[in-house]
Amino acid sequence: MARSVYVNGVWQDEGVASISVFDRGFLFADAVYEVAAVVGGKLIDYEAHARRLSRSLKELAIAEPMPAAELLELHRQAVSRNGLEEGLVYLQATRGAADRDFVIDPNAAPGLVLFTQAKTVLANPKAQTGLKVKCMPDRRWGRRDIKTVQLLYSSLAKSQAVREGLDDAILVEDGMVTEASSANLHIVDEEGVIHTPPLSEALLPGITRGSVLSIARDHAIPARESPISVEALGRAREAFITSATSFVLPVVEVDGRAVGDGRPGPITRRMRELYIASSLRTAI
Rank of each mutant, 00 (worst) to 15 (best):
S4N: 15
S4Y: 14
D13K: 00
D13F: 04
G15M: 02
A17S: 06
S20M: 02
V21A: 12
L27E: 11
L27F: 12
Y33F: 15
A37R: 13
L43N: 11
R51Y: 00
L53P: 04
L57C: 09
L57N: 06
K58D: 15
E59P: 04
L60Y: 08
A61W: 03
A68N: 09
L71P: 15
L72P: 08
R76I: 04
V79Q: 07
R81F: 01
L84C: 07
L88K: 12
L88E: 15
Y90Q: 11
A93I: 00
R95C: 04
R100F: 06
D105M: 05
G111C: 05
L114Q: 11
F115L: 06
Q117I: 07
Q117D: 15
K119G: 03
N124M: 07
P125N: 01
Q128K: 10
K132L: 01
V133R: 03
C135N: 05
M136Y: 11
D138H: 09
I146F: 03
Q160K: 13
Q160S: 09
R163L: 08
E173A: 15
A183M: 00
I187W: 02
V188R: 00
E190K: 11
P198I: 06
L199Y: 10
L199C: 08
L204S: 07
G206V: 01
T208K: 05
T208Y: 07
L213D: 01
S214V: 11
I215E: 01
A216P: 08
D218L: 14
H219G: 06
I221F: 09
P222F: 02
A223E: 05
A223V: 02
S229E: 12
E231H: 10
E231N: 07
E231D: 07
G234M: 02
R235W: 14
E238V: 11
E238W: 00
A239L: 04
I241F: 07
A244D: 02
V252P: 00
R257K: 14
A258G: 11
R263F: 08
P266D: 00
R281H: 15
R281Y: 06
A283R: 15
